[in-house]
Every structure is written in structure tokens, then in C-alpha cells.
Amino acid sequence: MIIIAFFLAHWYLSVLMQTFFLHRYAAHQMFTMSPGWEKFFYVLTFIGQGSSFLSPRAYGIMHRLHHAHADTEFDPHSPEYSNNLFDMMWKTRTFYNDILNNRDTIPAKFKKGVPNWPFMEWFGDRWPVRLAWGTAYTLFYIQFAPSPWYFLLLPVHFLMGPVHGAIINWYAHRYGYTNFKLNDTAKNLLPFDFLMMGESYHNNHHKYGGRPNFGGFRWHEFDPAYPLILLLNKIGVLKLRLGRDEAYM
């Protein structure tokens, strides 16, 4: 049970930081926060994603492009322009690394206001740091895994951030239901999002890109991250920017 608890804790902390900090804050600027809190959530994202830490700056820029060019040849990760899931993930990795290493030619409007803590961006991307996280996960499994079969979960730990991105960017553009007619293939993957902290309501999000509540259009659509955002807004950690439904800004 210790291993299962550890896996679930890693899964949900990682996906929470991806949807809260990388997606809703870095990419869409649905709320603002002080520089101090921004650094706090940078560190929490680093802890939550560990060996698969994703740069908030690169993620934010790439995701804005996804909204602006969804399901076209300019989309960084579209199933429509990929042979399979792994092909899409590899293309996404290449696109992400070009942004991360300033090899891109992306227009400046997509980079406006994205968070950028150069030290953490650098530190989180170092291979010795990623390997240290992977070693820590492995040692934990050696200590507590009741059976060798549990070690099959380790690759998910190693690649947690990209796994979460692939679930939405591939499956939520192929399977599910729609509330809104769009010019792209975004769908709501799960009727009740117990898995992805609201990210599964992809059709809703593509319709209202700046709306902080991804669910709420049907009785069963509950976005678990939204109450947390409301709480943090109430206690002053962040400030919601209401009335925003733009595609990516």
C-alpha cells in the first residue's frame, strides 16, 4: 500500500502543478501572484514533477501556440499531424526543447508575460538532477515494493509530466464528448474527471480558453482544481482575473 500511496501522491501532485501553475498560470494567466509566490510554486512544481520537470516558460509558450493553431501543421502537438502517440510525443519534445534553448522563431506575442526564473529553469533541466530524482524513486521502490511487478510503475514516475501531457493532447483530441462545436478536435475525455484535475474537460477549455473553471457546463463536470484556485484567491495567495475567455492570453 505504501507504493500505491506514493504513486498516487506523485501522480496527483504532478498533474495539479501542471494544470494550476504551468497551464492556468504560465500559459493562460488566469490569475496573478507575487514574485515570491511564483517562486514558491516553481519549487513545488519541481518537487511534484521531479525527474520530468517541465519549464513553465517553455510550456506556457508552447501551449499558447497549441490554442492559436490547434490541429493545424503549426500545432506543437496534434494527433492530426502525427503517426501515433509516440510520434506526437517526440515532436512535442523537439518543439519544447527548441523553446527551452532559445532556438525558436515564435512571435513575441506568444511569449508575453510567461514566468521565467532562470535558475530554476536551468536547474530543473539538468540531467544529473533528473537522474537523482529517478534514483530516489528507484531506491524507494527497492525499500518498499512488495513485489517486482510494482517496478513496472517506475517509468511513469520518470516521465510523469510528459505522460500527463500525452493523455490530454492525444486522447482528448480523439475520444470523448463535446459540449461546443469548435474548429478543432478537442473533446471532453471524461464525464467526471477523477484522473486529470479538470484537464479532461478539453472541449470546454478550448471554447473558453481563459475561464479558470474547466468544468461546470454539465451537472457531472467537476473541476477539482477550481475550488483550490478560489481558496487561494480568497486568502490572497493569488488574484483571479475575471471575465477572461480569450484563446490563449
Rank of each mutant, 00 (worst) to 15 (best):
F95C: 03
W149R: 05
P115Y: 12
L100C: 04
N116G: 00
I99H: 09
T138S: 10
D98Q: 15
W117R: 00
N102V: 01
N97D: 14
N97Q: 15
D104L: 08
E121T: 01
A145C: 09
M88W: 05
N102E: 12
V129T: 01
K112Y: 08
W127M: 13
W133M: 03
I106R: 11
T92L: 13
G113W: 07
W127R: 09
W90Q: 13
P118M: 07
D98L: 13
W117C: 02
T135Q: 02
Y141L: 13
A136G: 09
L131C: 07
D104G: 06
G124T: 04
N116P: 00
S147H: 15
P128F: 12
W90T: 11
F144H: 14
F110M: 04
K112V: 12
Y141N: 00
T94F: 11
P107I: 09
R130D: 00
R93I: 12
F140H: 02
G113I: 06
P118H: 09
W127F: 08
G124K: 03
D98G: 06
F110T: 04
A145M: 11
D125L: 02
W133K: 03
P128I: 05
K111N: 02
I106P: 05
D104A: 09
N101H: 15
D104W: 09
I106G: 08
A108C: 06
E121Q: 05
M89H: 02
T94E: 15
Y137C: 06
D104F: 07
T105S: 14
T94M: 15
T135R: 04
W149G: 14
R126L: 13
K112D: 12
A132H: 01
K91D: 10
P115Q: 12
N101L: 15
N97Y: 14
N102G: 03
P146F: 11
N101G: 04
F95W: 10
P107A: 12
Q143E: 08
I142S: 08
V129Y: 04
W122H: 11
L131K: 12
P107N: 07
V129W: 02
M120Q: 00
R103F: 10
M89L: 14
K91P: 03
S147D: 14
Y137N: 05
